[in-house]
Design a protein around this nucleic acid. Structure first.
Lengths: 251, 251
DNA sequence: TGCGAGATGTTGACATTGTCAACACCTGGG
DNA sequence: CCCAGGTGTTGACAATGTCAACATCTCGCA
C-alpha cells in the first residue's frame, strides 16, 4: 500500500481492538512454536497438528502465508485478495486481521518466507559448486533458477511491495541473511586469491545487482524479443561478472 | 509541473475504448504506421488552439500523462488515482477513457514518456563523456542520475506495472530505443578495441542488468543498512562492469 | 452555408476490495 | 469452574476502476 499517510479520511484511533500487530509480527520472543519453518520449502502439507475445531483453525497464520504464496505463485501478486485467501481456507475475510496488521504485513511474511528459501538455494549452489569459481557460478545459477521458478514470489521479495525498513525488521534480517551468503562467498574467494581485494560488501552489491537486474528484466519481460535465449544471457552475465570480480590478472 | 519536458510527442489515433455497439473486433486504428518518435522534449507543432472552449480541453491526452507523471513523482504509483487525475485537470473522472483504454494504458504512456527522456539522458552521458571509457562511465552515471532523480517514474518503466509486449507495441519500441543507445555504445567501443568481442546484445544486457539491478535495489531500499554510501557503490559497480566488459588483457 | 456523424466530456451506477467495529465463540490458567 | 483474552464472524463503509447512457462540441462534406 502507500508508504505515505493515507490520503483517505483519517484513521480513527485504533481503539482497543487491534491486538499487538507489532508483537508477533517481528520476532515474538515468547512463542518459538509459532516459528516452524527454518528451511526452504514452498508449500507445506496441512499442519494437521490440532484436530481442527471447526472454529479455531489451529495454525491459521502459517496457513494464510502458504495460501498467499500459492495464489501469488499461480496468478501473481495483483491477483491476491484477502477475501479470497480467507475463502480458500474456509475462514471469514477478516480472520486474517488477527494475525497480520494489514495486507502489507501478509506480503511481508510472504517475502520473508521467500528470503529463507532463497538463502538456502544460494547456499546450496555455493556449497555444491565447491566454493571456488564453480561455486560462484553455481550460486549464480541457483539465483536465476529461484527467480525464474518463482517469479511472482521473487517480485514480492524485491519489487518494492513491502518497504522493508519501515515494515518489518525481521524481514530485513532475512534479506540480510540471503545477502550474507553472497558476501561470505566473496570473502572466501578473496581468501583463495581468486577475487580482487576490496570491500566485500561493495563487491557483493555489484554481483547482487547484476544478477538481480537480469532476473528482474527477464521476469518483467523486458528482454522480450531479443533473439539471444535467456540461458545464454545468464551464462554471459555470470562470466562477465566473474571477470569483473576476478583478481586483476597482472598485479 | 511535469518532470520531463512536456513533449506532445507524435499524436497517434486515439486508443480510447470504443463503445460503439458494432465495434468490429478491435477496430484497428488505421494509419498507425505513420507513428513517429521525435526526440523527447521536442515540440511538435501542436494544435495551437489551446484552451478553446472549456468543454473540450484541447490536449487532454498529454495533460493526463503530465498530471500522472507529476502525481507519481510526488507520491508514487500506488497513490495514482484516475479520479484524482481527472479532478486535478478539472475534468470528470471518466474523461480519461476517451484517450486511454484503462489505467494500465495511462501508465504505459507514462512509461513511454519516461523512456524517451531516459534515452536522451543516456545518449547525453555517452556523448558528453567522449564516447570512450569516460563516455561509458558517463552513461552509467547518467543512468543512475535518472533513476534516482525519478525513482517512481523509473519504477513505472521497469517495475512490471505494464507488460510491454501485451500492452503497447509503441512502448516496447521506446524501451528498445533506450537500450539501443547502450548497444550502440558497446558496438562502438568494440570498434575502438576497448571492449572484448561478443554479441553486443548480450554484453549490453549484462551492462543494463547491472545498472538496472543496482538502481532497483537502491530505489526499493534494499541497500538500506549497508554502510557504504550509494555513490561509492555506483562507482565500484561501474568500475567492475567496465572490467568485466573490457577486452581481455592478454588475448 | 448548413448539417449530421463522430469525437469528447458528463453523470449515475455497480462490483470489488481493504478495513474497522461490534459481537460470538472457544480455550487455558487461576 | 469460570473468566480474560485470543480467535473468528457478520455488518458496514469509503475508495476505486469501469461501464452505460446521455450531453455537447467540431469538422468535413453536400
Amino acid at each position: 500500500m502507500s508508504q505515505f499517510p493515507a490520503s483517505s479520511a483519517g484513521r480513527r484511533p485504533p481503539r482497543g481492538r487491534r491486538r499487538s500487530p507489532a508483537g508477533p509480527a517481528g520476532a515474538p520472543p515468547a512463542s518459538s512454536a509459532s516459528r516452524q519453518r527454518p528451511a526452504a520449502g514452498e508449500s507445506v502439507p496441512a499442519p494437521a497438528k490440532k484436530a481442527r475445531n471447526a472454529y479455531h483453525h489451529g495454525n491459521l497464520r502459517q496457513a494464510l502465508v502458504d495460501q498467499a504464496v500459492a495464489t501469488i505463485g499461480a496468478r501473481g501478486v495483483e491477483a491476491l485478495t484477502l477475501r479470497e485467501v480467507g475463502a480458500s481456507l474456509r475462514v471469514s475475510r477478516t480472520a486474517l486481521y488477527r494475525h497480520f496488521a494489514d495486507k502489507t504485513a501478509l506480503l511481508a511474511a510472504v517475502a520473508a518466507q521467500g528470503f529463507r528459501a532463497f538463502r538456502d538455494a544460494l547456499q546450496e549452489g555455493w556449497d555444491h559448486g565447491g566454493r571456488g569459481r564453480a561455486g560462484f557460478i553455481g550460486m549464480g545459477r541457483a539465483y536465476f533458477r529461484f527467480a525464474l521458478a518463482h517469479p511472482s514470489h521473487y517480485r514480492v521479495m524485491f519489487g518494492g511491495f513491502v518497504t522493508k525498513a519501515a515494515c518489518d525488521p525481521g524481514l530485513e534480517a532475512e534479506a540480510g541473511d540471503a545477502f550474507g551468503v553472497l558476501a561470505g562467498a566473496i570473502t572466501e574467494l578473496q581468501g583463495q586469491g581468486l577475487v580482487r581485494a576490496g570491500d566485500p560488501m561493495a563487491l557483493g552489491v555489484y554481483v547482487w545487482a547484476s544478477t538481480h537486474g537480469l532476473a528482474m528484466l527477464a521476469i518483467d519481460g523486458q528482454l522480450g524479443r531479443k533473439d539471444v535465449p535467456l540461458d545464454a544471457l545468464v551464462a554471459v552475465l555470470l562470466d562477465r561478472v566473474w571477470d569483473g570480480l576476478a583478481r586483476s590478472p597482472r598485479a
